[in-house]
Design a protein around this nucleic acid. Sequence first.
DNA 1: AAAACCTCCAACCGCATTAGT
DNA 2: GACTAATGCGGTTGGAGGTTT
Length: 232
Amino acid sequence: MGRRPCCEKIGLKRGPWTIEEDHRLMNFILNNGIHCWRIVPKLAGLLRCGKSCRLRWINYLRPDLKRGGFTDAEEERIMELHSQLGNRWSKIASHFPGRTDNEIKNHWNTKIKKKMKHLGLDPATHEPMNNITDQTESNQITKPNMCSTIKEGEETKEQTLKDEVDIGSLFEMQGNEISISSSSLYSNISRSESSSNFAEDSISLEQWDLTYMTDPLVPWDFFTNLDDNIFL
DNA sequence: AAAACCTCCAACCGCATTAGT
DNA sequence: GACTAATGCGGTTGGAGGTTT
């Protein structure tokens, strides 16, 4: 007997999310909050499993997400935390409000790891490697600050990413307040309590639910009136 | 121009952990 | 305490888009 699947997969959709699916999920969560991921897709009218909905919300749709490239300071902090915590990405992500563990993990695997190898450092141990070939490569990099070795093209790309509009940009975080910047939406959300832990889902969503969802339902038109580019 | 290769990241998988009974 | 279901987490993959040959 093998392990049971996390959910009934027959008839469920997989792969990239469509704009309409994003609309449905976001609208549902903003209106109802999150109580049980398993029933979210059913109630939201989505042919997805709860796990997939959770992942999509956490990694892409959450309004408090910070998008765009990582700054040098963030990279240095990631390296510092990784040396202390290892691959505990969720722990590391908890130090970066608005960043997801998946995002940090991807950035580590695609950028920081390479950068460390070029500098002759073992990404796993953060100790100098005795690998001759890597040493040769690392000798070509002279900057002591390992986070300042981004190529020109990468900088341009990162800047472009920062300039892109995303779902998170619908909302503005200012100190202890979060407000929806789109003129299409008629209400602001104020948070009376400290939001120092805003990145923690349970707290933020409960707050979200209590403060915002007492308002009338977010109209579907709110999403359909927005430029679709926002969701790309 | 097009094929081959590379990079990045969203999404999936399966195990671990937690919560409920 | 044992069992089950739900959720969290980290490793891995697939494919789109970019770059090189």
